[in-house]
Nucleic acid binder design. Structure first.
Lengths: 148, 148
DNA sequence: TCGAATATGTCAACATGGCTGACATAAATG
DNA sequence: CATTTATGTCAGCCATGTTGACATATTCGA
């Protein structure tokens, strides 16, 4: 698990160096990409970090034009986050590396995609699985928000 | 993968707090446990960190009596590392948490242990897989060393 | 046997990405 | 209008990684 994860995050790490970014930037970019118009508070909730930690990383992503903020129309206190075209391109480039590794691993191991996914999912704390599903499938508060 | 790994290392993290240890200590303890009489250089090679980074963590593990050093008989420059009984107990306690999670995940996902292992293995960079196997199976330079 | 290479330790400075606490501002809400 | 909420920001701390430089003991090769 340790080595699999190390190499899994290794591919993106190389690309991120080009922009002087680290893994923290990747995570932020990823979830903002998956959740257009996400609120800062919800992003913090997903990442389980403090807003002070997020601030530094987010600022760099915004400064370099990968993410932009806009005022919420409904609630103007909110700064809704979304990736720019540039951000989308990078997010996709990074995701591609990881999904390719994943696909290769499945092919080489003779497992099915479904089994691998179910196994990884089952490694997560039971009480967190639902939350994780929501985060991944982005059937998120972009939708839930509208019901509020 | 991100969430699975996060929770996978989460269990040990709680236990390690008791001793004011972090993940770095866990990794060192784990590999020293798996490789009795490992040389410092080989440990650095496994962990892929610098000796300065290792030094701090290792010192704490030695000071608190989890690991001990002894002079190599063959080469007296070497400081061979091994866990104490106390270190063994902690290593086993931590390993138990993770193997239990692993076993549960396998049972719940309907995958076989073999498939899950092969999948994780296949996630590793092909050129590193052999090394990783050696590290895990501890058919290590404890043996290889004798051939030198 | 002596000089070079090796194994390890250690000092100092620095980067990254977490953390806490405190406080500011603007907007929403009861 | 007072309070709560969403966000931002300042300042300092911690863990764990990095590089570079240098010290010491020991082994090894010419």
């Amino acid at each position: 698990m340790f080595f699999a994860y190390r190499d899994f995050v290794g591919d993106p790490d190389h690309v991120l160096e080009r922009y002087q970014f680290g893994r923290a930037h990747h995570r932020v970019l990823h979830f903002v990409f998956r959740h257009p118009e996400i609120r800062v508070a919800d992003l913090l909730d997903i990442l389980k970090i403090t807003k002070q930690s997020l601030a530094r990383v987010l600022k760099e992503l915004i400064d370099q034009g990968f993410i932009l903020q806009k005022e919420g129309q409904v609630d103007r206190r909110q700064r809704l986050l979304a990736v720019t075209d540039k951000g989308k391109a990078l997010a996709l480039e990074l995701a591609k590396l990881q999904t390719e590794r994943f696909a290769r691993a499945i092919a080489q191991s003779g497992t099915t995609r479904d089994q691998a996914v179910r196994f990884l999912y089952a490694m997560i704390d039971p009480e967190r699985r639902e939350d994780v599903t929501r985060m991944i499938t982005q059937a998120d508060r972009a939708l839930r928000g509208k019901e509020r």
